[in-house]
Computed example of a mutant assay.
Amino acid sequence: MKTKMETTNEILIVDLEATCWENDRIPVGQKVDIIEIGICELNLTTKIISKKQSIYVIPERSEINSFCTKLTGITPQLIEEQGIYFDEACEKIQDEYQSANLTWAGFGNFDKEQIFEQCDWLGIEPPFSYDYLNVMEEFRNHFKLQKMIGLKRALEYLKMDFEGNHHSGADDAYNTAKIVRTLLG
């Protein structure tokens, strides 16, 4: 794992939840929008996972449907009560985590691609550095597996329990951080 981790003491672990549709059939006129940014910080020296939170995001190009709510637990009402716009979420992350200076990680490439796509659409700078660690790929390489496996199966492989609710951004980020901590030794 060659990253900025050699020069900093923290890595941010991010997991997104986004608008989704059954069978990935995106309705005409809608685009995938981030609706939750789950984030936590892993201290590379102490191996302590901290600052776990969910930042709920108001979708601007799509709507949350019943399939999406069933999968993520995120309702339109939750977004109405607790959501902020994506550009505000990016500012919040930069302010609270100094994220532009840190390596960040996610389980797969979806999180990175979606963050950069949505920032590009809005014409804003991404809140994260370009130093991204794909934990799914690192896991596969570390254990010399033939295929990529999902987050829950990776935890099972390590004989770890999944903590929280799958498809909750904050819980998925936390569980990904547990995997990163194991890979770092």
Rank of each mutant, 00 (worst) to 15 (best):
K4P: 15
T8D: 12
L12Q: 02
I13S: 00
I13G: 02
I13Y: 04
V14D: 00
D15R: 00
L16C: 01
E17G: 00
C20I: 02
C20D: 03
E22I: 01
N23D: 03
R25E: 12
V28I: 11
K31D: 15
D33L: 08
I35F: 06
I35T: 08
I37S: 01
I39N: 00
C40E: 02
T46V: 14
I48W: 11
I48F: 08
I49T: 07
S50F: 08
S50I: 10
S54F: 11
E60C: 06
S62N: 02
N65S: 05
F67P: 03
F67S: 06
L71T: 04
T75Q: 10
T75G: 08
I79F: 14
E80H: 15
E81S: 11
Q82V: 10
G83N: 12
I84K: 10
F86P: 11
F86L: 14
A89S: 05
C90W: 02
Q94N: 10
Q98S: 13
S99K: 05
A100S: 14
L102N: 10
T103L: 03
W104I: 05
W104N: 11
G106N: 04
F107K: 05
F110A: 01
D111V: 00
K112E: 00
Q114G: 03
Q114N: 08
Q118N: 03
Q118H: 02
D120Q: 05
W121Y: 14
L122P: 05
I124A: 05
P126W: 00
P126A: 05
F128L: 06
S129C: 06
Y130K: 13
D131P: 08
Y132G: 05
Y132S: 09
V135M: 02
V135S: 02
M136Y: 01
E137P: 02
R140D: 01
R140P: 01
N141L: 14
H142P: 07
M148A: 07
G150V: 02
G150S: 06
G150N: 02
L151I: 04
R153K: 10
R153H: 08
R153M: 12
R153T: 14
L155W: 03
E156P: 09
E156W: 05
Y157Q: 01
L158A: 03
K159Q: 07
K159W: 04
D161M: 07
G164I: 13
N165M: 09
N165R: 15
A170K: 14
D172S: 10
A173C: 14
K178E: 12
V180K: 10
V180A: 09
R181K: 14
R181M: 11
L184W: 14
L184V: 09
